[in-house]
Design a protein around this nucleic acid. Structure first.
Length: 800
DNA sequence: GCGGTCTAACTTTTT
DNA sequence: GTTAGACCGC
């Protein structure tokens, strides 16, 4: 079953005395082996709650403490800023070390650092700015309008997806395989988009990765420099890496002669991941990178961290049983030394409203038992489900916090302010120009802008530079805007970042505009917060202060750095000065980069003891005492859009696995017979994932539906209607996986093609039928309301 | 050019 | 049920 044999845990016999360091105290044998792995490439399969971050940080600390590497020889890559920060915080707590000398950060953050240091070689302007997803979309829309592309046939979103996807695979326009006329058009747009970005001096997220990959690929000296420097490379959440990120790691860690990859032998790459928690395939993540890594990096050591320190037995048994239904797995099973704990409670409600109501009651009970509200989390598959729950919590006056939604730097008013700031830094940033040229409104409408765009195109100028070409009233308004920007730019010389932002907020008219708006108070508050964000950024990054003394000498002397190219800069700062000129990014440019790379917190009010609401995706990496998984229904979870293909269903199952493993003590799952979705009532069957959980670990709070009649589904009568209180725990209960449902004799008397009448939807035609007993449902085409799935135990249908 | 109204869409999301 | 974007009339 396991792709890798069983030779793992004992693999890394420490070559340094383990007892010598208090760092290594209290590690289990597998963790110890991982922390003290000898030089060489290794894969660590780290299950949920197995102490992965602790292992990673302890290893870095141990390597430095034992003198095997200096801070400059470390490269640790994560996906989120949060994870990177967490790592640095824990590391500083372990060792008195200057973390700034280490390259710990997100893929994109580190790529940015590389490109800032070698901007010339990367063919970028020194002040290049970063487009976020929103900016990218508007840049593409603008491009498509300019070239009169039919946006019915090529929606901008789709083009964006195409471009991002190509970059994730490391493909430039000329590398993309063209299989249809549509492909050809998209590639053409990709090419034009690239030219536009280059002209405007901006890069998108994918470009950050791809450009730095090419930088390393095309410049032997640079590549070899970093290959020698980074003796120890560590990648977190390896299952989430895409093709390009994997190639980037390869490029940094080995030779690629004649297109062939050979591990360098003098550095170690340690990949940490969990294939069972791979839930980002939809955005290009490739779990296959794990197997490729083992093969291509000649991995000799694999360690499985299966000891779970988070959850009780029933919860882990549920997770293990569920995930065992997936076929493509490396093989791993969580174990705990805690007892079985509480059973997993399952609840069926009549409506989504009732489901939320029940949850509120249950939470009140939990609170009475002394559990903090911030230790209760409600998880759902899609954001649309949060509303009912929010309403119920709100009406019951239970404090709650919703994760997701707009982050600080993504808010419209913040984006507007940033657009002004970007124009100060780079007048050719047409995306920013268009965002604020008429915001606040100053009499520049679509017609004037079109004229301006035509003029700019004809002259090969940016919008800013083409303003003088437009005459009349429109031209006057445009000139006034440009003059305002140019004056602002002059005024910002020599003043602090804080003062720059205050100046811009004032002179742009943004504050004034929002003051006139009844609902502008929050926006003004956010704009004021922007000043604070800039202030704390300046303090943190050390702008305006002496740079922190960095262990440059140490780096140069250390064995890790031997053979480093002395002509290349030793980059120990996220925003290092240019090696040749000593020029550093202006605080403003640096802040804008920061804003793009770190979109800020996406939670409303922190601090308060509030129930946590979030999607399952957002919950990854978090843990709570009590977890409610809601909307356990076919079509919702697993989501209907992912059920068509096999891989999709397996990803949904992994998502379910992530959801289950968030819980420490108590886990609830609930589904509803009816649910309002997109303004329509839906009748969903309960999720197939229930059938993959060990009956013995569950406790049905409502009578378990008799819908899955044993005779029809071959369960051999293994299902009792309801478990007694306490929900007996039995190891054997999930020994045999459920048998897939078979066609049963219909008991409802409906057949495909039949005409039926529904009280609300009127007359319709039965299209198809599924299930039996209480779970039977019919797909019916109502001429006036479209095709619907109806649960026959709920919907009242009469044959016509 | 601006602001109001109507209509289609709408998993999951970090950088 | 909500929201963004298109469309239309002033």
């Amino acid at each position: 079953m396991s792709l890798f044999g069983s030779h793992d845990a004992s693999a890394g016999a420490p070559s340094f005395p383990a007892a010598a360091s208090p760092l290594l105290a209290n590690l289990n044998p597998e963790q110890l082996a991982a922390v003290t792995l000898p030089v060489g490439n290794a894969l660590i399969l780290a299950g949920a709650g197995s102490g992965k971050t602790r292992v990673l940080t302890t290893r870095i600390a141990w390597l430095m403490q034992t003198g095997q590497v200096s801070p400059g020889g470390i490269l640790a890559v994560t996906f989120t800023n949060k994870a990177a920060k967490e790592m640095m915080t824990r590391l500083t707590a372990m060792l008195p070390v200057n973390v700034r000398g280490m390259w710990i950060g997100t893929f994109h953050g580190l790529c940015n650092r590389l490109l800032r240091a070698h901007w010339k070689l990367a063919h970028l302007p020194s002040t290049f700015q970063i487009l976020d997803t929103q900016d990218q979309l508007s840049a593409i829309k603008r491009l498509m309008k300019q070239y009169n592309v039919d946006d019915e046939r090529f929606p901008a979103k789709q083009t964006q997806w195409f471009i991002a996807g190509a970059k994730e695979d490391g493909l430039r326009p000329r590398d993309v395989e063209v299989r249809s006329d549509d492909d050809r058009k998209k590639v053409e747009l990709y090419q034009l988009y690239e030219e536009q970005c280059q002209r405007e001096g901006v890069v998108d997220f994918g470009e950050l990765m791809l450009r730095s990959y090419e930088l390393l690929r095309d410049n032997d000296a640079v590549r070899e420099h970093y290959q020698r420097r980074f003796r120890h490379i560590m990648i977190d959440e390896f299952q989430d890496t895409n093709r390009l990120q994997y190639a980037w790691i390869k490029m940094l860690s080995g030779r690629t002669a004649e297109g062939r990859f050979e591990p360098s032998g003098h550095n170690s790459v340690i990949a940490v991941g969990d294939d069972d928690q791979s839930i980002y395939a939809f955005r290009g993540a490739r779990v296959g990178n794990m197997a490729d890594f083992v093969r291509e990096f000649d991995v000799q050591r694999q360690i499985k961290l299966e000891q779970n320190y988070r959850s009780f037995g029933n919860i882990l048994d549920s997770a293990n049983a569920l995930i065992s239904n997936n076929t493509k797995r490396l093989g791993k099973s969580l174990r705990t030394e805690q007892g079985p704990g509480e059973p997993v409670r399952v609840y069926e409600s009549t409506s989504d409203f009732a489901e939320a109501q029940w949850m509120v009651e249950e939470m009140r009970q939990l609170a009475r038992e002394g559990i903090d509200r911030k230790e209760m989390a409600v998880l759902y598959r899609s954001n649309a489900q949060s509303r009912v729950i929010e309403t119920a919590l709100f009406n019951a006056a239970v404090p709650y916090r919703v994760y997701g939604g707009l982050r600080f730097f993504e808010r419209a008013e913040i984006k507007h302010a940033l657009a002004y700031l970007r124009l100060l830094e780079n007048k050719d940033d047409d995306t920013s120009f268009l965002r604020v040229v008429n915001f606040p409104p100053r009499g520049i409408g679509a017609r004037s802008i079109e004229q301006l765009q035509d003029a700019a195109r004809a002259a090969g100028h940016s919008l800013h530079d083409a303003v003088s070409a437009v005459g009349g009233k429109a031209g006057a308004n445009l000139s006034a805007f440009v003059a305002k920007i140019d004056v602002l730019r002059e005024q910002t010389v020599g003043i602090s970042l804080r003062e720059i932002i205050e100046l811009v907020l004032d002179h742009s008219g943004l504050i004034e505009h929002y003051k006139a708006d009844r609902e502008g108070a929050d926006r003004i508050e956010n704009l004021e917060e922007l000043v604070n964000a800039a202030e704390s950024f300046v303090t943190q990054e050390g702008f305006g202060r002496d740079a922190v003394a960095l262990p440059v000498d140490e780096l140069r002397q250390s064995p890790a750095s031997q053979g480093l190219d002395p002509s290349l800069p030793v980059i120990d700062e996220p925003l290092a000065p240019d090696a040749e000129t000593g020029e550093t990014l202006s605080p403003l440019a640096a802040f804008l980069t920061h804003a793009a790379l770190e979109s800020g917190d996406n939670q409303a009010q922190a601090g308060q003891d509030a129930v946590q609401l979030m999607t399952v995706h957002a919950a990854k990496g978090l843990e709570f005492d009590c977890v409610f998984i809601t909307g356990m229904e076919e079509g919702l979870f697993p989501h209907e859009n992912s059920m068509s293909d096999f891989d999709g269903l397996e990803e949904e199952r992994r998502l379910m696995y992530v959801a289950i493993t968030r819980a420490r003590q108590r886990l609830y799952m609930s589904h509803s017979q009816t649910r309002m979705l997109h303004g329509q009532t839906r009748y969903n069957l309960k999720s197939r994932f229930y059938d993959e959980l060990p009956e013995g670990a569950l406790k049905w709070l409502t009578p378990k539906n008799q819908g899955f009649a044993p005779s029809a589904f071959g369960y051999g009568g293994g299902y009792a209607t309801s478990r007694g209180a306490g929900g007996g725990y039995s190891k054997d209960s999930f020994a045999s996986p459920p048998v897939p449902p078979q066609k049963a004799a219909p008991s409802h008397g409906l057949r495909s093609g039949m005409q039926v009448f529904h009280n609300k939807f009127g007359e319709g035609t039965v299209v198809s039928l599924e299930g039996s007993g209480d779970d039977a449902r019919a797909q019916i085409n109502f001429p006036r309301h479209g095709v619907k799935w109806l649960a026959l135990s709920v919907a009242k249908l009469t044959p016509v």
